[in-house]
């Protein structure tokens, strides 16, 4: 319960920041732009023409849900990678601010455990990500659904998957912030984790192209530990496009990301518990 209070505090703090206000305005402007500028001609469930601000984007006649797939795929990748890139910049100083001198002493004087502080911060950031991605994906599907009559709810699931990916990145950022109280280091750690997680998703293909040797062995060992963020982003895109997704593989990737996040959080708590303030 106290974890939720900490998360709620973080959300209150986020609403006062211009980063998130800017994100909200940008998503809203993008959606309003689509409402006003996008014209879709639908005949018997087939998309006959697409015009954006008067320019013809696509003129072929094909089933509306199939024709809209590239839009949902692009939106899913934008939410996954764009959301992670934005999140690691905008959320990088939440944990350092939490640990700042004066504030942390005050928080620790309250009846709240140290792990609840970290858990609440993580949960708050995750909620922020969820709100942003669901707002973007939900707005897009409502606009396209209203214009075409095709209601594809899969982008919402894709948005949730994207948040799981961001949660993995943020757990690493939180760990780095506990180790070194610096927003820049936290953001750099997040960027490194995002890069590593993207490479780890293409592990098999990369290993196949590497020669035997210590380099290959090191990459195999290292990438085996990293969460497969690109696989998760690809699965989210496939889900958004209502294309078949391997349930076993997706479950494995989700479990891997969840366990990695939990491990990073546990390490952060371990270090945090031993710190004197």
């Amino acid at each position: 319960m106290k974890t939720l209070h900490v998360a709620a505090d973080l959300l209150r703090e986020a609403t006062a920041r211009k980063w998130f206000l800017g994100l909200g305005v940008a998503i809203t402007a993008l959606l309003l732009g689509l409402v006003g500028g996008l014209r879709l001609d639908v005949v018997d469930g087939a998309l006959a023409a697409t015009r954006l601000f008067g320019s013809v984007l696509q003129a072929s006649v094909r089933p509306a849900d199939v024709a809209l797939r590239p839009v949902f795929i692009a939106a899913s990748y934008l939410i996954s990678y764009g959301g992670m890139a934005f999140g690691l910049l905008a959320c990088s100083d939440f944990a350092p601010a939490l640990l700042s001198p004066g504030r942390i002493e005050h928080l620790l004087s309250l009846p709240v455990r140290r792990w609840e502080l970290l858990g609440g911060t993580f949960l708050g950031v995750l909620t922020l990500g969820l709100i942003g991605s669901l707002y973007g994906a939900g707005g897009l599907l409502v606009i396209l659904g209203a214009k075409t009559g095709v209601w594809n709810w899969h982008p919402l699931l894709a948005a949730v998957l994207a948040v799981v990916g961001f949660g993995t990145v943020y757990s690493g950022m939180l760990l780095s912030a506990v180790l070194v109280r610096s927003a820049a280091v936290s953001a750099a750690c997040g960027a490194l984790l995002l890069f590593a997680g993207t490479l780890a998703g293409y592990r098999t293909a990369i290993l196949a192209s590497m020669r035997e040797g210590p380099g290959r062995w090191a990459f195999a060992a290292w990438s085996g530990l990293m969460p497969s963020l690109s696989t998760l982003a690809d699965a989210a895109a496939n889900l958004a496009a209502a294309r078949p997704v391997g349930v076993g593989q997706l479950g494995g990737v989700l479990a891997g990301c969840g366990l990695f996040s939990a491990a990073a959080l546990a390490l952060a708590v371990w270090h945090f518990e031993g710190k004197d303030f």
Binding site: W115, R203, T204, G224, L225, P227, S228, G246, G248, Q249, G251, G252, V253, A255, G256, L259, F260, A262, A263, A264, A266, L267, V269, W270, E273
Partner: peptide, 24 residues
Amino acid sequence: WLLAALVLLVLAALVKRACSGPEA
């Protein structure tokens, strides 16, 4: 917490290894 972190990290690697298989 340290033990939990190590166990979770090993579990994450094992799950990834078990579910990677041939990519669809």
